[in-house]
Write a protein that binds this DNA or RNA. Structure first.
Lengths: 232, 232
DNA sequence: GAAAACGTGTGACTGTGGTCACTTCACTTC
DNA sequence: GAAGTGAAGTGACCACAGTCACACGTTTTC
């Protein structure tokens, strides 16, 4: 199936490109439909394509040595992924899989590189994006350095809260929170320990579950305090 | 003191710039002499300058909640730092301090941004640099996810070995290894635990100390095996 | 509407790594 | 060479988080 210029215009990252440049990109790109749980980008392997999503939902995941997977971030329609190996042929450490049936655009890195040459806007966007990623990874590393288990969990919850869209952020809602198991893997804790921490937080009325899909942060201040108490 | 074009030519990152562009950069930059332990870049604070080093040695450090510092990377002459906040005004999470009396060039981000517009080479270099950083942070995160303490230590040693210059790499030498204390902070272990792991590794003749400044990896294979055994 | 699958809650037990309180060693600096 | 300093080594103790085992509740699937 052919990629149209109109379709590419939907992506904020490509907004600064001229009609002509978009046409170039469109011609070299292709659309692909992937089913649920399909691997879109293979972790650790160099890929020749950037992957733009216009329908469905993707997730960046890493695998532990014993084969379990850790959710790292989501890719929503209008966003893209796979930019890490844009200039060095090394790919990215984590894999990206489809959470539901999705429509993606595969855009050759060579074409993207050409486009970047014409648009300094794109350089800025990409650079800022990478910088954000470095900061996030850095924060995550700092989190794992905390010795207290409650601090680690609270820190993670805090980070997730900050990443919510503005409405959820204001109301203290974490949408689609990870399971205790997943949190455990991210924070280097056992599933049971996470459950126990949550029990504490719930009896202290710091957080509250709202069905499977939402986690309410009732007391943002305490959450932050517990996180910043850190050691001990 | 004035910055000359000749001086800027020493830096690989600026190699692709024309005489004229270098002249522009030189005019807007300034030289600064910093003494040992001086803070060159303040962590978490936006900085208006990139910092190019041409004499001395710098180190990126992070601080734990209880005030101890963690060494993250070194900056050697010809290299630079502080590029994370080039486009977003957010600075970088870690601080950079001088390990010895050093001479640095402060280059305003605005000037660097202008230079980048003229040189696509620089875009590539910077992007690759950031990508490497993301990969390194990712690997570090994966390491902290290991439950076995020996695996964590071996993983860290392995990463440090891979970062050595080619001569040391070949001979299995880790130059200027961090202290047990520092390793402990990086790996979320106590100083004593690191010592005990090292005792094990030394009796198994996997590693060997060579004075204070060198650590010899005698059995690279075992080191890697212990690392990859991971859990358990 | 079973049956299956998955996530959560909880108790009992255990082992590992943190803490503390030393000593020993290596390297500076008088 | 004595004194001082910072890192490394070591044993005893014990709390905390991991493991195991099982119950419970919800959601999916046929």
């Amino acid at each position: 199936m052919a990629v149209t210029v109109e379709l590419l215009k939907r992506f904020p990252m490509l907004q600064s490109l001229s009609e002509q440049e978009l046409e170039q990109l469109a011609q070299q790109s292709s659309i692909k439909s992937v089913s649920r749980r399909a691997v879109v980008i293979n972790g650790g392997v160099a890929s020749d394509y950037l992957c733009f999503l216009f329908e469905g939902r993707l997730q960046g995941v890493d695998f532990t040595l014993d084969g379990r997977e850790v959710g790292l971030y989501f890719v929503e329609p209008g966003d893209f992924c796979g930019e890490l190996g844009l200039y060095d042929k090394q790919g990215q450490p984590e894999s990206v899989i489809a959470l539901s049936k999705s429509q993606i655009i595969l855009m050759p890195v060579s074409a993207v590189r050409t486009a970047i040459q014409g648009s300094h806007q794109m350089v800025e966007s990409l650079f800022t994006r990478m910088a954000t990623r470095v900061r996030k990874l850095s924060a995550q590393r700092a989190l794992l350095g905390l010795s207290s288990t409650v601090a680690r969990v609270c820190g993670q919850l805090w980070m997730m809260l900050e990443e919510q869209d503005s409405l959820n952020r204001r109301e203290g809602v974490i949408a689609y929170p990870p399971t205790h198991q997943e949190l455990g893997i991210m924070l280097n804790l056992s599933r049971e320990t996470v459950t126990r921490v949550f029990q504490t937080l719930q009896t202290q009325e710091v957080v509250k579950r709202d069905g499977t899909t939402r986690l309410l942060v009732l007391d943002e201040k305490s959450l932050r305090a517990l996180f910043e108490a850190g050691d001990g």
